[in-house]
């Protein structure tokens, strides 16, 4: 058991160091949601009227509404970034170091995932602190309650990234991932507009948004930030994590994975 924890610690530390050293990545991870918060939300607050919907107990400004969605966005991008670095590691060969370790492959991939989640938590809390500095504050208890929610949503979105990395062979194909995974997931969710707003334009759109796992992650975070547990999203997020991680493990299984159909690894 000790050996397992040693590997987890080493992989997490390495991922964190990598992240801190890549200042550009750190900055862009922060600037992206802040641009949405400051520029996009400022423009939209006039155009969008929001009624009182749970967990909010009073009228809120649009900036307040999109904060949980932006937390989710940070984790979504972080999951894809980890996925990208995994594909890079595969192409450069350093992934083999991980895959030829005698520790179970599932555990090592989970370590990679956990390391990515740790990095995303760091990003989210720095973002929340800056948002608070701009006056967009959550209840104090909400920051604590959001922690387990963020861990779960991070795990689910990270597992999605892992799944993507097990199917994408080349670095170049990642533009497709942006177009077909990140953007639809983000825009077809409750990150930017509540479901009832979506329903105003189309019921179909609302249904798609409702089943989008990213919506569930955002809602889990949203309720948690106000100290409330959203049971249904919690269930979905856990299910999503199990499904994505299970499929990713299958993708990385040397006997069953897609690798089998490729050339020499």
């Amino acid at each position: 058991m000790k050996g397992y924890l040693v590997a987890l610690q080493a992989i997490t530390l390495r991922e964190a160091q990598r992240f801190v050293h890549q200042r550009g990545r750190f900055l862009s991870a922060l600037v992206r949601p802040l641009v949405w918060l400051v520029v996009f939300a400022a423009g939209f607050r006039a155009a969008l009227g929001l009624s009182i919907i749970p967990p909010y107990q009073t009228y809120i400004t649009y900036e307040v509404y999109i904060v949980p969605g932006l937390c989710g966005m940070i984790q979504l991008f972080n999951g894809m970034q980890s996925s990208l670095s995994l594909v890079y590691d595969q192409e450069m060969g350093s992934m083999r170091l991980l895959l030829t370790s005698p520790l179970p492959r599932g555990w090592l991939l989970f370590c990679k995932l956990a390391a990515g989640v740790a990095v995303s938590l760091l990003q989210v809390y720095v973002f929340l602190a800056i948002a608070a500095a701009f006056g967009i504050e959550m209840p104090l208890w909400g920051y604590v309650a959001a922690f387990p929610a963020l861990v779960l949503s991070g795990l689910m979105l990270g597992a999605l990234g892992l799944l993507v990395s097990s199917t994408v062979k080349q670095f170049e194909n990642f533009a497709g991932v942006m177009n077909f995974v990140i953007f639809p997931m983000f825009f077809l969710s409750t990150a930017l507009y509540p479901l009832w707003k979506m329903a105003e334009s189309s019921d179909l759109l609302r249904d798609i948004c409702a089943v989008n796992p990213f919506t569930q992650a955002v809602e889990l975070i949203r309720f948690a930030l106000y100290g409330q547990l959203a049971l249904w999203p919690l269930l979905w997020v856990i299910l999503g994590f199990v499904a994505f991680f299970g499929l990713a493990l299958l993708g990385y299984d040397p006997a069953k994975g897609l690798r089998m159909r490729r050339g020499p690894p």
Partner: peptide, 11 residues
């Protein structure tokens, strides 16, 4: 080298 050792569970 120590990262590699950790991947093998050696500490």
């Amino acid at each position: 080298m120590s990262y590699f050792a950790a991947l093998h569970g050696i500490s």
